[in-house]
Design a protein around this nucleic acid. Structure first.
Length: 481
DNA sequence: GAAATCTTGCA
DNA sequence: GCAAGATTT
């Protein structure tokens, strides 16, 4: 084959949780090859051992894919969105287009890595090269090791080790590069709008649309807004549930509309070195630690990290679970949080700890039930974060001090929603209550409830569990292990 | 600051 | 082998 014909063969960039143009090592390398670039995303709902995205993530994914396609079209290319089993679709596409190389970013989960290994063998066999890099982490998880050569299990140690290394600078947008001209017959197989990403009957995404705008530009706007305003009181502000004290970057990070290296570098560029910026950076560190942990402990999604907890007998309580999911537990702060999740596809981080502790401790329901619900309802659903943090809140292995991890929802509400605005916004039937009565209406005076138009058991549920009893049941159960 | 056990670095 | 330290209570 002559060099000229080799150069005219296209290269493919296979997008995954990295839906952006800037700081995209795979796209960068493909663009630098000089060959015409074909950008593709494969939505695989058919490979059974890899859970497909949940409903809220699918809505988010649709918006992010459309945004990325728009950005590529502005430069004269496009994003081909195909549906089907990745291991069939990608080799077939390579064959049809006579591609000579495919670029992608490593994935984290063991099953994804095994699938990528199989793909590489198939593609190499067909004469297609594969080049993989780390794209949506600060550092290659293999590179952070203890002095003994093992892997960290404690966040602080991990964080210290990570800070001792140089995080790569984010890459700029690739300069102009040629795109592969997608044949109309191939374009007809595009599935972006038929891939069942958007809810139809009923269209429940109204609350998501009015809360969120997916997109790469929007991700950077969120970040710079946050760095100009909220970051100065992040240490305290990030815990106040009624306020916009957090960065709200999570869905953008989960889909890869922005990369952690970009966040890291932007904090540095703003010259932010104070305590609050340090705490914000360490939250990016927690995201990294979740990825690192999932990479090194692939069983994290299914099993307790500490096997001792396998003996724990969780309650089978479908009605309690359902009340929790629907925000009808009778505990106002829990219901506020669960309704915020249902309506907006997102929940404040402090509230996630409260509802997680309530489900796994007061209701003694398996953390995997909570994880599954979050997976389906969060626009920022992320395998690594979701499972590591559920195991953290359940106390099943992430760190060695689970003893006090039974949050008292009412004390949490008083501390982190001091004016009751969070509860009032999401549980409007209690809006006329205030102070203690708003936090614990079951203890309120009958006349206060009456004046506020609240009838327990009618306009708002009785608590499904007595908080003190639930707490002691959890302590007894956990101590018995 | 209690009460608990595991991780990590250093002897 | 031993001491220090461990997000969120």
């Amino acid at each position: 084959m002559s060099p000229a014909s080799s150069l005219s063969r296209p290269v493919i960039v296979c997008f995954r949780d990295d839906l952006r143009m800037a700081d995209h090592p795979a796209l960068h390398e493909a663009a630098a090859s000089g060959a015409p670039v074909l950008c593709v995303y494969v939505l695989d709902d058919e490979t059974s051992d890899l859970p497909p995205p949940g409903a809220a993530s699918r809505w988010w994914l649709h918006g992010t894919l459309a945004d990325l396609r728009g950005a590529l079209e502005k430069r004269g290319g496009t994003l081909l969105t195909l549906g089907g089993p990745l291991e069939k679709i990608l080799p077939r596409l390579a064959e049809e287009t006579n591609a000579r190389c495919i670029y992608w970013h490593h994935r984290l989960h063991e099953k994804e890595r095994q699938q990528d290994e199989r793909l590489i063998r198939t593609l190499n066999h067909k004469g297609v090269e594969v080049r993989a890099q780390w794209g949506s982490v600060l550092l290659d998880p293999e590179r952070i090791r203890t002095k003994e050569g093992g892997f960290y299990r404690v966040y602080t140690s991990f964080w210290k080790a990570l800070q001792g290394q140089a995080v790569p600078e984010p890459l700029d947008l690739p300069s102009d590069f040629p795109f592969f001209r997608v044949a109309p017959s191939l374009m007809k197989t595009d599935r972006l709008d038929e891939a069942a990403l958007l809810p139809r009957h009923p269209d429940w995404a109204g609350g998501l649309r009015s809360t969120w705008e997916p997109g790469e530009r929007e991700a950077h706007e969120h970040l710079t807004d946050f760095l100009h305003h909220e970051v100065d009181h992040y240490g305290r502000g990030r815990d106040l549930m009624a306020e916009e004290g957090t960065s709200r970057l999570s869905p953008y990070l989960a889909s890869g509309a922005i990369s952690p290296r970009q966040v890291w570098a932007t904090v540095g560029e703003h010259g932010l070195n104070g305590e609050d910026a340090r705490i914000f950076r360490s939250e990016i560190g927690w995201r990294e630690f979740a990825r690192y942990t999932l990479y090194h402990f692939p069983q994290l999604c299914e099993r307790n990290l500490n096997r001792k907890f396998d003996a724990l007998s969780w309650r089978r309580a479908p009605e309690d679970l359902r009340a929790w999911q629907k925000g009808q537990t009778g505990i106002p702060v829990v219901d506020a949080a669960m309704r915020q999740l249902w309506q907006t596809g997102w929940m404040h981080n402090r509230a996630r700890m409260i509802v997680g502790s309530f489900l796994t401790k007061h209701l003694l329901v398996d953390w995997r039930e909570g994880e599954a619900w979050f997976w389906d309802t969060l626009v920022d659903a992320d395998r690594a974060n979701n499972t590591m943090n559920w195991q953290w809140v359940a106390g099943t292995g992430i760190d060695a001090a689970p003893f006090f991890r039974v949050f008292n929802p009412s004390r949490q509400a008083e501390k982190f929603d001091p004016d009751g605005d969070y509860i009032r916004r999401w549980v409007p039937e209690l809006a006329k209550l205030s102070g203690k009565a708003l936090v614990e209406p079951w203890k309120a005076q009958a006349e206060d409830l009456h004046a506020a138009g609240v009838t327990l058991g009618k306009t708002y549920p009785h608590p499904i569990v007595d908080l003190a009893e639930g707490r002691s049941r959890a302590l007894v159960t956990f101590r018995s292990l």
